[in-house]
Every structure is written in C-alpha cells, then in structure tokens.
C-alpha cells in the first residue's frame, strides 16, 4: 500500500518544513531543510522513480554542504520587524486565497494512480526499438528530448559563471589614472 506510506512521508516533510522556517538557530534550520530533501527522495523511491531518488539525494547533500558553509558561526536575528503583524495578515489572506484556488484546480488533475500517459506512450513504444536502452527516462532525456538537456547544461554553466563572478575576491586592478581620479573626487 504505497499511498498510506506516501501520505505519512508527506506529513513528515510538511512538519520538517514548519520546523525549518520557524526554528531560531540557523544551523538547525539547515539540518531540517536536509530532512525535507531526504524525505522527498524516499517518496520518489516509493513512487517508482529510482533515477530521481538518486539525483535528489546527491543534489540535497551538495546543497546542504553549501548551506552549512554559509551559515557557520551565524547568530539568529533577535528582533522582529515592526511591520510584522500587517505582513502576517496580508500573507495569511494571500495564502488562504491560494489554497482555496489550489483545492479547486487540483480536482481537475487525473486521479492518483491513474496517469494519462498519452504522450509518453509513444516514448515507451519507441525507446527499446529506436534508442536501444531499457531505461525509458534516460532515453527521453538523452535522445527524444536532448535539446531540453542541452538547455539544462546551458543553465548549469551560466550559474557556474555567475557563482565565479560573485565569489571572485579581487576585481579589476586599479591603474594609476583610476586612483588619481578617485583622489580628485574625494
């Protein structure tokens, strides 16, 4: 009965999310965020998506390492914003509207356990005869939808360039004319 265990795991993930955003200590918050990611990975495994579970596990570990590096030695912020109450009220009103519309919209999705599979039937029919790989997910991301993967690699490298540009310690070296111009302005 995967439905019941998936339900319990989603409740666990929601509890971990509430802990992650409400706890004061930043390191505990990051650890609770790791619990969310691991719970999601187990749900993927139960829902018959092993490739996703592996990817999620690796990505979550990497993300956790970066987050812990960023939060080392941080103290939590003590005081709340003076505008906290109006902020809370407006956010609550927005979230109520969001949840009601989501409850109405999610009824239109196919029932849990009965997917449409209209497009993917083609991929399933052709993957063994045309791509010659038993794993249909791999066949889709590397053959049928290879341009998607190319775009993903582009986004990945753009993010790496962004990280390098942001974390670079020294900028352009100052020339003599620059420093003399600065001196005149000061």
């Amino acid at each position: 009965m995967p439905e019941l265990s998936v339900l319990m795991l989603i409740l666990f993930v929601i509890a971990a999310a509430i802990v992650a955003i409400e706890i004061k200590d930043l390191l505990s918050s990051v650890v609770a965020f790791g619990a969310i990611g691991m719970g999601i990975a187990v749900i993927f495994l139960l829902l018959k998506a092993p490739d996703l579970a592996i990817t999620q596990l690796v990505v979550e570990l990497l993300c956790l390492v970066i987050l812990i590096r960023a939060t080392l030695g941080q103290k939590p912020l003590e005081k709340r914003s003076p505008l906290f109450l109006p902020l809370l009220l407006s956010a609550g009103a927005f979230l109520i509207v969001f949840l009601v519309s989501a409850a109405l919209a999610l009824k239109e999705l196919p029932e849990f356990g009965q997917p449409l599979m209209r497009v993917s039937q083609t991929y399933i029919d052709w993957s063994l005869s045309m791509v010659r790989t038993p794993n249909v997910v791999t066949a889709i991301i590397l053959d049928f939808r290879a341009y998607d993967t190319l775009g993903e690699a582009t986004v990945l490298f753009t993010a790496v360039i962004g990280v390098l540009a942001v974390m670079r310690k020294v900028g352009r070296k100052k020339t003599k004319s620059d420093s003399s111009r600065d001196g005149r302005q000061n």
Binding site: L47, K48, A49, D51, L52, T55, P115, L116, M117, V119, S120, Y123, I124, V136, V137, I140, I141, R145, D148, T149, E152
Partner: peptide, 11 residues
Amino acid sequence: TDPLPQALVIT
C-alpha cells in the same frame, strides 16, 4: 509508471 514527468523533474 509515466516516464515523461520523471525526465522533466530530473532536469
């Protein structure tokens, strides 16, 4: 199971 959403979610 449906493989197409799994491929999208990996990306």
